[in-house]
Design a protein around this nucleic acid. Structure first.
Lengths: 103, 103
DNA sequence: ATCTTTAATCGTTTATCTACGATAAACGAT
DNA sequence: ATCGTTTATCGTAGATAAACGATTAAAGAT
């Protein structure tokens, strides 16, 4: 490895990827989505309907929020017949925390 | 202190305030604002014009981003004659990190 | 008093977000 | 094959965000 590429490596690990970090922040930039993440953490995993019950929002709205969280990579959703079972993606959550601590 | 209020206290410290956390996330939900915060951290403090120079954005746009960050409490701005000197509010930044680690 | 510099605000356009009801899709059960 | 349940998507309305140029405000310099 050249000196230059080594420094580039170091910079890469030290540096915060603004796009990556801001995009996760954006996914968390709504109280309902924070509540969803907290609830999923507490429940370990659960289906959409259970999440809908805990929020004062229409099912379609909750589904949209879940989509935003899923697109950010913070949660995963697995289709099980007519239901979808959601859970936290802890890898991504840890990545977020690491980036948050770097800022 | 009653048992109940003690538990309320504990819950309060353990619990994440969704509104507070999501509102800071919202302030950080744009790459330009992440870059501003990073730059301010590196520079310790600097005037608006220096920040404008580092970004590919119009002065008015940068000013708007600074306003968002200031409203979130993450940065402070002090007027010094015709200039404004900005710096990080480390209390708020630490608060954010604490909240991020709780999620 | 006028000029210059610096930063905030205004006004506008375009894009994105939030919320909802309605509808569609998927699938198990009957 | 039809029904009921569950969730995603569509369509829409209103609100908020992002970007810019133009203008205003503040204050030091001439």
């Amino acid at each position: 490895m050249t000196k230059k590429s080594k420094r580039a490596e170091t910079e890469k690990t030290d540096m915060l990827d603004e796009e990556a970090f801001s995009s996760i922040c954006k996914a968390l930039a709504h109280p309902a989505r924070i509540r969803i993440v907290s609830f999923l953490k507490k429940m370990n995993q659960c289906i959409c309907g259970e999440i809908v019950e805990t929020l004062p929002l229409a099912q379609s709205t909750v589904s949209q929020h879940l989509k935003v969280l899923k697109n950010s990579g913070l949660i995963k959703g697995e289709i099980e017949g007519p239901r979808t079972c959601y859970c936290i993606d802890y890898d991504m959550l840890e990545k977020f925390k690491k980036m948050a601590n770097k800022i």
